[in-house]
Design a protein around this nucleic acid. Sequence first.
RNA 1: GCGGACGUGGCGGAAUUGGUAUACGCAACAGACUUAAAAUCUGUCGCCCGUAAGGGAUUGAGGGUUCAAGUCCCUCCGUCCGCACCA
Length: 861
Amino acid sequence: MSRYNPRDAEPKWQSIWADQGVDCAPREASDSPKYYVLEMFPYPSGKIHVGHSRNYAMGDVVARYKRARGFDVLHPMGWDAFGLPAENAARERNVHPRDWTLKNIDVMRGQLQRLGLALDWDREIATCEPDYYRHQQAIFLKFFEKGLVERRQAKVNWDPVDNTVLANEQVIDGRGWRSGALVVQRELDQWFLKITDYSDALLDGLDRLDRWPDKVRLMQANWIGRSRGAHVTFPFADTEDKIRFGCDGITVFTTRPDTLFGASFLALASDHAITTALADDNPLVERFARDCQASGRTEEEIEKAPKKGVDLGVKVLHPFDKDWEIPVWSANFVLSTYGTGAVFGSPAGDQRDLDFARKYSLPVTPVVLPPDTDAASHTITNDAYTGAGTIYNSRFLDGLSTEDAIERAIDELEKRKLGEGATTYRLRDWLVSRQRYWGCPIPVVHCKSCGVVPVPEDQLPVELPADVTFDKSGNPLDRHDSWRNVDCPKCGGAAKRETDTLDTFVCSSWYFLRFTSPWPNDKPFDAAEAQRWMPVDQYVGGIEHAILHLLYARFFTRALHDCGLIDMPDGEPFAGLFTQGMVTHETYKSEAGKWLAPTEIDERDGKTFEIETGKPVTVGAIEKMSKSKKNVVDLDDFIDTYGADAARWFVLSDSPPERDVEYTDGGVDGVWRFVQRLWSLVDDFTGQSDADLSGVSAAGLDLRKAAHRSIRDVTDAIEGFRFNSAVAKVHDLVNSLRKFTARNDADIAAHGEALEILAQLIAPFMPHLAEACWERLGQDGILATTAWPEADPALLVDDTVTMPVQVNGKRRGQIEIAKGTDKDAAEKAALADPGVARSLEGLNVRKVIVVPDRIVNIVAG
RNA sequence: GCGGACGUGGCGGAAUUGGUAUACGCAACAGACUUAAAAUCUGUCGCCCGUAAGGGAUUGAGGGUUCAAGUCCCUCCGUCCGCACCA
C-alpha cells in the first residue's frame, strides 16, 4: 500500500487539465445548455488564506458538477483591482499602486491555480488595466448621455481617514465601511449615478429572484424603502408669508393622512429652505439651525441627540379647515434628505411627535381608536398608538377604518388641490466620485467656457498617469499638472481634467458581462456573447455584499439595457445567488496584547503559549479569519502539508455552506485520514472492475445498492447546495466499501464498480484525488471530461422494508415485510411481533394506523 | 424601537410531504500492533434507572392540533443578523 502524495499528484493533474484546456468555456455555442457560475471576484490584497478558499471551492463544485452533467460551463476569474489598500501600500512602502497590485495578482492567481479550480483563465480580467476601464469610461459616457449621471452639490459622507467621500451604502453604523472612521457630513460637488430612477424596478424585480436568499431580498427591499402615502400642503395663514417664501404653503410627506385631524404642529428640518430663510433675521432660529448643522458632526451623534426644536413663529392652515391655525417648528429629528424635509406632527399616533409635543406643551388629540376600546376611556399619555383602528375626533373621517380613512383623506386633498397620493423612497442616488488616485478616471474635463465636457469616445481611455508620488496627502492627480491641464475637446481652450475617480463598486457592477467576451477593444463586451451566457446562473459570495454590490449590479444591467448595450429586459444579472458562511478560527493574544498567528503559538499540557517567548497566550473568541486578527491559516502552507483537495474537502465538510465553519486542527487531521483511507481503498483493489456483475452475493448486492444510493444522494445534495450532506454521504459509501469482502468474481466487479462511482462522486470536491483514483482503477480518459454517473433505478428500491411498529405512539418493535404489503397483512404482522404483543398485554386494540412501507401505529387502551 | 433568522449529544451537525430523532464527522474512552510513542486498525460512545434483558424522560421553556410533532399553531425565554428619528 502506498500513501497518496498530493504534492506529486496535484500539479500533475493540473497540468493535464491545462494541456487539454478542459476548463475553458466553449467559444462556440452548442446544443448543450449553458451554465454560468461565478464567485465574487477578489480584491488582490496580498495572499489567499484558507478562509477565502471556501467561496471558490463551492463555485468549483457547481462548475465541475454541471460540466459532468453536460452543460457548457463558463467559470471565469478576475481581479477587483482598483482600491485604497494599493495607495496605502504606496504610502507605507514606497511602491507604486500598480506594481503592488500586479504582484499581488500574480501571487493570488498562483494560489487559485494550486487549488485546482476549474477556471477559464483565458478570460482573466483586472479592472485596473486600461483595456478594462476604457470600456467603463465609455459606459459612464453612455449613462451621461442618457441622463443617468449627475454632478451636483450635496451633503455627502466624508471619511476623514481615507480622505474621500462615500456612498450611503458604504456607511455602516456611522462609520466608513473600510476605514471604520466616524463619517462626517460635508457639502461638496460630487458625481452621482441616478439609481433612484430604478427604485421601483429594483424593488419589484426582487419578487422574481426566487433563487436568492430571502434575507438578501428583504435587506434590499428595506434599503430601497418604498413607502406609500401622500403629499399634503398646509397653506400659510399669513398671505405675506406666501410672498416672503415664494410658495403657497408647506408641503409635507405622510404615510398617515388619516390622522390629519390629530395635527398639532408642523416640523421642518433644520436646513429646510424656510428654516434657512428665517434664520437670517431670527437669531434663535439661526442658532438652532447652526447647532443642528451636521457638518463637523458625526451621524452617530445625530442619531443619539435628544429631541429639540424651535418655534419658527410661522402659522399654517389645516388643509381641511381654513380656520384652524397650526404652528410651524423646526425640529432636529426631521431629516432633510427624506420626503420633503417637513412633517406634520400627529402626536397621538407617532412616538417622536408625542415626545416633541410633550416637551413643548403642544396639543395631543387622539384620532385613532384601537380595536376593542371605547372613545370615552381611550387616552394617550406617554405612549403613542401607532396601530390600526377606527378613526374618531375627525369630522368626515369618523367611523372609518384606518385604511379607508387614508383613501378618503387623499381623495379629499386632491379635490381641494392641497395634496395627492405620493410614494417616497429611502434609496438615494449613488455617489460615485472618489478623491483617490487608484481608480477609474472619470472621463470629463472642466472648461471655463463650456462647463463639463465629456471626453470624446475616440480619446478613451483617459489613462491614469504613472508618474505620481504619495509623499503628500490628498489626491496626486490634483497635483499632476501635465495630466490635468488639457485642451477642451469642444472649444479647444484651456481646460482641466476631472481628478475624481470612480468608486470601485462601479468596476464590479459589470465585470460579469465582460467575462462573457473579454476580447473586444471597441466595446465593453460582445452583445451576442452576453446574450448567450447571461444571466449568471449561480453566483456565490459573501453576505456582506447583500446591498452594496448586488444592488449596484442590478442597477447597471438595467441601465445598460436602457442604453441599448445589452438586451436584458428582465434586468437581473444573477438568477441564482448563494451567500456562503465564513471560515472561523480561534484568536490569540500575547501577554503584550498583540494578536498572534496560529503558527506563532503552541499548546502543551492544555496550556497555550507563544513559541518565541514561551509566555502564556490568551485564547480569544472564535472569529472570521482575518488578517487584522492574524487568525488565518495560509493557503500555501496548508496545501504544502495536506494538499489542495484536503483544503477543499475541509471547508465544505461539517457545516452547512451558508453557515460558518470552524477551522480546527482536529478537523484537518480527520480530512487527511479520510484522504489516505480513500486512496488505500482504491490502491488496494486489484480486481477487474469490468467483469460480469451477475451472480453477486447478498453482500455484493448490498454494496451495489449503497453505491447507487450514494449517486442519488450526492447528486441531490449538490443540486440543493448541501455540500456538507454530500460529504457525509460519501463517507457512508467509504464505510460500506471498507466493510466489504468479495466472495466471488461478480463481487469483485461490484467492488470495482463502487470504487469507480466513489471516484466520480468526489470529483467535484477533490478533483485531483478523483483523477488519481480513476487512473488507478484503469479507466480510460480523465474524469474532468467524464459524464456524471447515473444511478440504476432498479438498485434504489428494496424488496423488503423495515417498518417500525408503535403502540400509542411509542416504538415497540419492527417488522420486516415485502415492499408494498397491504394494510391488513402489515397489521397482522405487526400484532404478531413479540415486542408489540408484550406491550399490548392487558390492553384492547382500538385502532391500527398503517402507512404502507412506512409505519404501523397501534392505538390501544 | 422595527424587521428577519435560528435554538437537536461534550462539539460541528443530519432527519423528503408530520411517520424509527441523534446519520456523518470531531473529541473522548477501551483494546490490538509497538521496547515506547506517533501513525494505523478494532470496538464503545447523548441522558437517567438496570450486571443484563429491558425500561423511562428527551430536539430552548410551556401549552395546543394529530393515531403520530425536531417538523404545524400559540405564548414565553435566549442567541445571531439587518435597519434604525425614513414621518
